[in-house]
Amino acid sequence: MPYLTLLRRPFVVRLLAGSLVGRMPSAMAALAIALTLREAGAGYRLVGLATGVFAVAGAIGGPLLGRLVDRTGQPRVLIASAVVSGLGYVLLALAPGSLYGSLGGAVVAGAAAPPLEPCLRALWPELVPEGEVQSAYAVDAGAQEVVFIAGPLAVAGAAALGPAPLALWLAAGLGLLGSLVMATARPSRDWRTRTRDAHWLGPLRSPALLLLLVALFGAGWALGGFNVFSVAYAEQHEVPGGAGLLMPLSAFGALLGAVGYGALRWTADAPLKAVALCAGMAGAYWLVALVPGPAGACLVAVGTGVFFAPLLTVSFGLVGELAPDGTVTEAFAWLVTLIGAGVAAGSAVTGLLLADGTLPAAAALGACGVTGGALVLALSRGRLALPVAVRETTDTA
Rank of each mutant, 00 (worst) to 15 (best):
200 W>S: 15
313 T>N: 08
10 P>G: 05
338 L>C: 08
93 A>W: 00
110 G>E: 13
267 T>I: 12
359 L>I: 14
68 L>N: 02
393 T>K: 15
260 G>P: 08
333 A>I: 05
144 Q>L: 14
348 A>Y: 13
381 R>D: 09
280 G>W: 07
85 S>Q: 11
111 A>L: 13
239 V>G: 04
362 A>K: 00
307 F>S: 01
207 P>W: 12
347 S>E: 01
281 M>A: 12
152 P>G: 12
247 M>E: 09
363 A>D: 03
145 E>M: 14
332 F>P: 02
255 L>P: 05
349 V>E: 10
52 G>A: 03
228 V>K: 04
94 L>F: 11
254 A>T: 05
147 V>C: 10
230 S>I: 10
50 A>I: 08
291 V>K: 03
288 V>N: 03
152 P>Y: 12
312 L>F: 07
235 E>S: 15
158 A>T: 01
281 M>R: 02
32 A>V: 08
214 V>E: 02
359 L>T: 08
139 V>D: 03
394 T>H: 14
53 V>D: 00
192 R>C: 05
315 S>T: 15
276 A>I: 14
93 A>V: 05
123 L>H: 03
38 R>V: 11
85 S>C: 08
61 G>W: 00
392 E>L: 12
211 L>Q: 10
170 L>C: 06
360 P>Y: 11
31 L>I: 09
159 A>C: 05
129 P>L: 10
292 P>N: 14
164 A>M: 10
122 A>R: 09
16 L>E: 03
130 E>S: 15
142 G>C: 06
240 P>F: 09
112 A>C: 14
20 L>P: 01
87 L>Q: 07
325 D>I: 02
184 T>P: 03
268 A>E: 11
265 R>A: 14
152 P>F: 13
111 A>D: 01
32 A>F: 04
309 A>F: 06
127 L>V: 12
274 A>C: 08
238 E>C: 15
247 M>R: 04
267 T>M: 07
269 D>A: 06
333 A>G: 06
351 G>V: 03
108 V>E: 10
396 T>L: 15
276 A>Q: 07
236 Q>H: 10
107 V>A: 02
53 V>I: 09
284 A>M: 04
223 L>F: 14
11 F>C: 11
211 L>G: 13
188 S>A: 15
227 N>C: 06
320 G>A: 13
128 V>T: 09
323 A>Y: 07
193 T>V: 13
246 L>V: 10
242 G>W: 11
365 L>K: 05
111 A>K: 03
291 V>P: 05
69 V>N: 05
61 G>F: 07
385 A>T: 04
143 A>T: 09
374 A>T: 11
282 A>S: 15
221 W>D: 00
94 L>N: 06
384 L>F: 12
261 Y>V: 03
7 L>C: 11
212 L>W: 00
272 L>M: 08
194 R>W: 01
202 G>E: 00
204 L>K: 06
67 R>S: 07
